[in-house]
Nucleic acid binder design. Structure first.
Lengths: 198, 198
DNA sequence: TAGAATAGAGAACAACCGGAGAACAAATCA
DNA sequence: TGATTTGTTCTCCGGTTGTTCTCTATTCTA
């Protein structure tokens, strides 16, 4: 469902407002905030947002605009598995995982499940979940998700030299790979790791 | 259950009031405090708070308004560090950590921080956090927290034989230790692991 | 330029919120 | 025990707030 310009604007105001006050605003307050004089006009826009699934339908409840659904779904999207030698098998509907704050970077993060033992000596095992902070730069020595020739994604320790990039596995039976700089795109940096023994 | 504006206000007053006085207030006093003239009106609000699970239902008692115990902080207690060769440095006020459900066992759990590299080949590094499910039994091959002679606690892979217990480190430079069964007490089994790269 | 889509005004309506107060029952006190 | 306080239930009321209309102005598109 496509939002009109005004609807996006109103949705933005709603989100901003929810960060500042715990009580949802009333239509009257919102009208003032938006420069509207008619609650009816506002109601039309809210209905559009409800239809778009961005606002909780307030079934008959009268007091205060019902809480917007501000994507409060706590959690970090789980995007799929990453293997050496294959692109990320993206799961479109990445269901969120609950990740402790300590493992989160400042920027947007996502979770991948590691397939393969290529980083075994760095303490990263087959089946572990890794928390990746999405960013395009990394420092030498960081463990990154690297996309090679837009084909395959892999989790390796990175070493960037003029004109070339070396991806070091942490497995004695595998050797480092060297690529021209332009063939490697950094997709994120390892920030945390989770493992379940259940 | 969504609280209305007035209900939140009243709940706040209740909390403030209970901090200052031992005795819960009577409806009449509360009415005065809130500027109400009718006990009936107040009662309606209190009922809403009871329905929301914030106030204990008072079965006809006088001065019976009591708050429900504020849901204790979700989380698993962080108890301290565990090193090979030393007892757990217990932190009495273990501040809770937020642990994803996937890493929790069925029983009570706690979190320790690993000190030392004795389990490095099992992918457990110095500084990692381990989630331990509290139990006294384990299966051979489990990684457990073992208390030796009531003196030192250690994280090792366990092998139980008739009359003796073998604790296997996962580090080529260390060797397994053998103890009489009665000298080793299992304090818990490894269920999860977290690592932060920040 | 006609028509659709977007945006707003304003009136009328209905449901809800918050409160008043009476009547009653149960607990507490004298 | 009797009187008083206190909690409970009930009805009623008015203002607020969400909803539904209709009508108008503007912008974009065919």
């Amino acid at each position: 469902m496509q939002l009109t310009r005004r609807q996006q604007e109103i949705y933005q105001v709603l989100r901003d407002n929810l960060e500042h006050y715990q009580q949802p605003p009333t239509f009257e307050e919102l009208c003032g905030l938006l420069g509207l004089k008619s609650r009816g006009s506002l109601h039309k826009h809210i209905q559009a947002l409800v239809a778009a699934g961005l606002v909780e339908p307030m079934g008959g409840l009268k007091r205060g605009i019902r809480l917007v659904d501000p994507e409060v779904e706590e959690g970090i999207p789980y995007l799929g598995r990453i293997a050496a030698g294959r692109p990320i098998e993206a799961i479109p509907q990445g269901e969120p995982m609950q990740i402790p704050d300590q493992l989160l970077g400042k920027g947007p993060c996502y979770v991948l499940q590691v397939a393969g033992d290529s980083m075994i000596e760095a303490g990263i095992q087959d089946g572990d979940y890794v928390v990746i902070e999405q960013q395009a730069q990394a420092q030498n020595g960081d463990i990154v998700v690297a996309l090679i020739r837009n084909e395959e994604a892999t989790l390796k320790r990175i070493e960037q030299r003029p004109g070339e990039v070396i991806l070091h596995p942490a497995n004695p039976s595998m050797s480092a790979m060297v690529y021209p700089t332009q063939e490697v795109r950094i997709q994120g940096v390892l920030r945390g790791l989770l493992r379940s023994y259940l």
